[in-house]
Design a protein around this nucleic acid. Structure first.
Length: 539
RNA sequence: GCCUCUGUAGUUCAAUGGAUAGAACGGGGGACUUCUAAGCCCUUAAUGUAGGUUCGAUUCCUACCAGAGGCACCA
């Protein structure tokens, strides 16, 4: 394991209190609050029936006594906070420690499903938000020690697809110059009209009289094309899937999964249909039809099969969904119960809606209506890095508003460039000193104690804080923590850069500073890799 | 109607019940001839409303107001 200062302080405090009291330890950046602080005394005051300050002072003096080499100052501050100031020597020690090889624990297999866009139209921005989120979750889990399987579910079956097939046929008829009216629930986007024309261009009117054969055939081709496009688009976002599961291939597994549920008594018949009805459950919230009265499966039935399979082969299952599927989550959880998969290992990440503004207007994004902004358009406009970073800046669950025109005009304002710029500057210094490719800094030969300036120590503290940021984020999936930390980290380096000249001067000091620059660069690269953002050597 | 989520500077977003609510963009001002000015420094400005719990609330509870999503033999 990497060194985690925050949890280390937590451990110290826990030992001091000797109970499982809940309290927090957090990193501080504000002047006068130490490097880390805790509210432990405020929490304990109630239990011990003493004044918070008294408790704080008490703990402070005990810790100072017991751990003199770690903290150069531990202070109690009104109304009862405990502020820890880390000793410089101790910091440098951990820094050296971090150069030792770390053994990653083996945590088993994690399945992460994301994007899974419906193939009935091009991927829109709301869908695409799933990409960077799911991908970074996968990266974090891999970093933590899971063997990660990235999955994409291709919804190419069911009633919605039937509707799509009818619509496609309709637009083909129109292209042929035939009379035809589109069902009111039909698809009417630009893209499907083009597809209809493309079918006409390919077959002419030859297939007009054989809808029973060709409707199905052209739909299959259309769906396959859509899948291919979506995966290609994902690749442009820097995402490659290990597994693509097609709903239409699931039939056997679905039958088997339902049989198993039936054996467990979790299926009931009602109104001629078969329902999934988990018992121990408060209400019909989770009840859902799995087999329609006409004998066909609904999507949910296939989802049961798919999840049953995931629960079998993975130790951790993550679903990344849009908020419009949030109502589906209790049912998914019921599936986990049905297949005896622990709820704590089944994580559902929900991302909020993306509202788009274009020409000052809010654009609604309904696939059937066809008025949506395609992810591709956005990706073309801002590029992969800005796209990913933009999506990662906000808490996944939060709704976000996105101004297309602003994106076009101001993609340069994206903080991702601030980060990359800091990285490029660091690279530039190292290159100038001759250290990028051929020669590497030998961290073991660095006189670290020569680094004394506040800007240098601040940078070191951030380097040492990263493991904690990664750990926390891999647990709660609040991805904005990563991107925000990266911005702060870049700022910290920029401050150092602005105040300190690295090259030149006393050789040992120069070497130590070069080492710091190199370390910053390594650390930043790791972060960018986790976020899937490129690190150009120059800009 | 029922359920879920969201209301924070002009705008887009942060803040495990904590200290002086942070950034970015925008607005206003400024410095610098060194390794990259996509940079730096200063400044401007906010918790929807009304109660409640608490030593302490943007965070928890209640009501209200405003917005989004879900409540199909759709996906």
């Amino acid at each position: 394991m990497e060194h985690n200062i925050r949890t280390y302080i937590e451990d110290i405090l826990r030992r001091e209190i000797g109970s499982d009291a809940s309290f927090s330890v957090e990193r501080q950046e504000m002047e006068g609050r130490g490097d880390y602080s805790s509210n432990i005394a405020l929490v304990r005051a109630k239990v011990e029936r003493r004044l918070p300050m008294a408790v704080a002072e008490d703990i402070a003096s005990r810790i100072k006594e017991k751990y003199p080499p770690i903290f150069y100052k531990v202070e109690a501050v009104a109304p009862g906070f405990l502020n820890f100031y880390l000793d410089r020597q101790y910091l440098l020690e951990i820094l050296r420690d971090n150069f030792m090889p770390h053994i990653k624990p083996k945590l088993g297999t994690a399945s992460v499903e994301y994007i899974s866009a419906n193939p009935t139209g091009p991927m829109h921005v709301g869908n695409a938000r799933s990409g960077p989120i799911g991908d970074v979750v996968a990266n974090l889990l891999a970093d933590r020690g899971y063997k990660v399987v990235r999955e994409y579910f291709h919804n190419d079956a069911g009633a919605q697809i039937g509707r799509f097939a009818d619509s496609l046929w309709h637009w083909y008829l129109i292209a042929c110059g035939q009379e035809s009216t589109l069902d009111e629930n039909g698809y009417q986007g630009q893209y499907i009209q083009e597809m209809g024309r493309a079918v006409y261009a390919k077959y002419g009117i030859k297939i007009l009289s054989k809808p029973d054969i060709y409707k199905d055939r052209i739909t299959k081709i259309a769906l396959a094309t859509m899948l291919k496009d979506n995966l290609a688009l994902a690749r442009r976002m820097g995402i490659t899937f290990d597994k693509v599961i097609a709903e239409s291939d699931l039939e056997v597994k679905t039958k088997r999964a339902l049989a198993l549920l039936n054996k467990k008594g979790l299926l009931t018949k009602k109104d001629g249909a078969v329902w999934f009805a988990p018992k121990d459950d408060n209400l019909g919230e989770r009840e859902a039809v799995v087999i329609k009265s006409d004998g066909t499966y609904v999507y949910f039935a296939n989802d049961i099969a798919y999840h049953a399979e995931k629960f079998k082969r993975a130790d951790l299952v993550v679903d990344e969904l849009g908020e419009n599927h949030e109502g589906h989550v209790p049912k998914l959880r019921a599936i986990a119960d049905a297949f005896d998969f622990p709820q704590k290992d089944f994580k559902v990440v929900v991302h909020g809606q993306v509202t788009l503004k274009k020409d000052g207007q809010v654009v609604s994004m309904a696939k059937r209506k066809g008025n949506f902004v395609m992810a591709e358009e956005l990706l073309d406009t801002v590029g992969k890095d800005a796209f990913r970073f933009f999506m990662l800046q906000y808490a996944p669950r939060s709704a976000m508003t996105f101004d297309m025109d602003l994106a076009r005009a101001k993609s340069k304002d994206n903080p991702v460039y601030y980060i990359q710029y800091a990285y490029a500057r660091a690279s530039s210094i190292l290159k100038k000193a001759g250290y990028v490719q051929r020669r590497k800094i030998n961290y073991k030969k660095v006189s670290w104690p020569l680094l004394e300036a506040d800007t240098e120590l601040a940078l070191i503290k951030m380097i040492l804080a990263l493991p904690d940021v990664i750990t926390q984020t891999s647990e709660d999936f609040q991805l904005q923590r990563m991107s925000r930390f990266a911005i702060d980290f870049a700022r910290s380096f920029t401050k150092f850069y602005e105040t300190t000249h690295v090259i030149g001067g006393q050789p040992d000091l120069e070497y130590a500073r070069l080492a710091l620059v190199s370390l910053f660069r390594d650390t930043m690269r790791r972060q960018c890799e986790l976020m899937g953002i490129s690190t150009p050597e120059s800009m």
